[in-house]
Design a protein around this nucleic acid. Sequence first.
DNA 1: ATATTGCGTTCGTATATACGAACAAAATAT
DNA 2: ATATTTTGTTCGTATATACGAACGCAATAT
Lengths: 262, 262
Amino acid sequence: MGDNKTNHRSTSRVLDILELISNGNNEGYTLTEIASKLNVPKSSLFPMLHTLLDRQYLSLDANQGKYCIGMMLFQVGSSYLDNFNIMNDITTELQNITNVCAEASHFAILNNGNIIYLAKIDSPEPIRMISSVGKSLPAYGTGLGKSLLMDHSINELRRLYPDGLKPMTQYTVTDFDLLDEQLSKARQCGFAYEVEESNLYIRCISIPIRQNNKIVAAISVAVPTFRYTQEKADLIQHLLLNAKHRLESILKTIYVDFNNLT
Amino acid sequence: MGDNKTNHRSTSRVLDILELISNGNNEGYTLTEIASKLNVPKSSLFPMLHTLLDRQYLSLDANQGKYCIGMMLFQVGSSYLDNFNIMNDITTELQNITNVCAEASHFAILNNGNIIYLAKIDSPEPIRMISSVGKSLPAYGTGLGKSLLMDHSINELRRLYPDGLKPMTQYTVTDFDLLDEQLSKARQCGFAYEVEESNLYIRCISIPIRQNNKIVAAISVAVPTFRYTQEKADLIQHLLLNAKHRLESILKTIYVDFNNLT
DNA sequence: ATATTGCGTTCGTATATACGAACAAAATAT
DNA sequence: ATATTTTGTTCGTATATACGAACGCAATAT
């Protein structure tokens, strides 16, 4: 929880409530659960929760007394994407990629060492990766993240992850030197790769999107290992490269301030 | 602004701020603009806005001093869709529809007489409707909305829209009797239609999704009038009907409490 | 049936927030 | 360059919120 200088207790608590519920299992939490998890008296939470209910930022589970994320929070939060006036172009590119290679494609930005998925097109195939718009993952363990970290020096990486690189699977790169080496290679060939480092049985190929020569986003294609072949990898790289070029040329004409958005 | 019994001022103000910014032009607002629009002293907003900034629920426009919707609000809000454990199935169906007919497809639910778009697949064609996930529109003026209102009686409609039906375009149905008549026809044939009632030059065909014989959601295809032909309409109705059947059979096996979510 | 645990809710007072005015800092106008 | 307007910021006190304890109520356990 933010221990910065400026801190308005009521506001922080509202956000604490929303984050607690959104990060939890989506069964929701009761008032007393929230109170104990946030170390806030029930009586203080009571009027806040009811205001959030009235305004539909939370909803009360019919089963009994479990507070869940409400529709208004979704509506208000969705307007974040209005900042990206190229969102339509991005989904069009992803759509095209997935149409051709039949695998899921993603668009993400970097925030404090984590990737945030902003758009996703599902594979038409029945076996799919579980990933969703709005979710975040540590960048170092994902293909998308390696694209976004591509220009980082090893010192910047160490500063970004002061607690080290925690494994997400048995294949996650947890050594800074090895990660740095992979990023060097990625810088040379233009693509970043992930082999079951964030999800078992999933490989990923990714490419960064630059604006004024600075990496501002990345796109990727994720492939189950059993569908992964060299021919498919070649095809995906070709698709990613084309999409990258089109998006980067759009970024030259349209103003999108990525710096402001992360 | 909610004028209900339970009302926690600080919480309400946080929500007022978020809603104001999310509904506005996405240039954002300055502190003083927010203060005057919400009738709240600047000095009261100051600590709140800074807490929201620190927590990345808002971001400060680089230009100068304009508060915009931040990334954390997007992340937290996105988790609303976790409630719908059939979201993947829904997007798959929409994907399929759009692949075949080459027009944009949507999925929406009803909330207080408004439709909320929860998923959308863009048309591959260059000329597209402007509609986005998380946005809401009055149900009576949209194809999706008419599907969602299909089972409503004229009295229920009058209660739902006590201030009458306000026109969105020159073709919007603003008469309760005419709307009721259209809904009756829709109930008979199973489909709801919209002809330039919410957006000029856009027509829409829609079908409701039922759970336990109760309408809980709707899917639609939107078509620019100049691309609209009877053959295409027939194709779209066929696609919608198939998708409806598949989604409804999924809803029989998976538990999704739509009542709780609106 | 009775005790027990856990939940949401209410209430009076201590305390932290909200207010308005005054201030500082920047942008615009003169 | 100076005046003027508009912005963000600080501060002391009035006031509304936060707290803990006690209450009522339901569900489970005995």
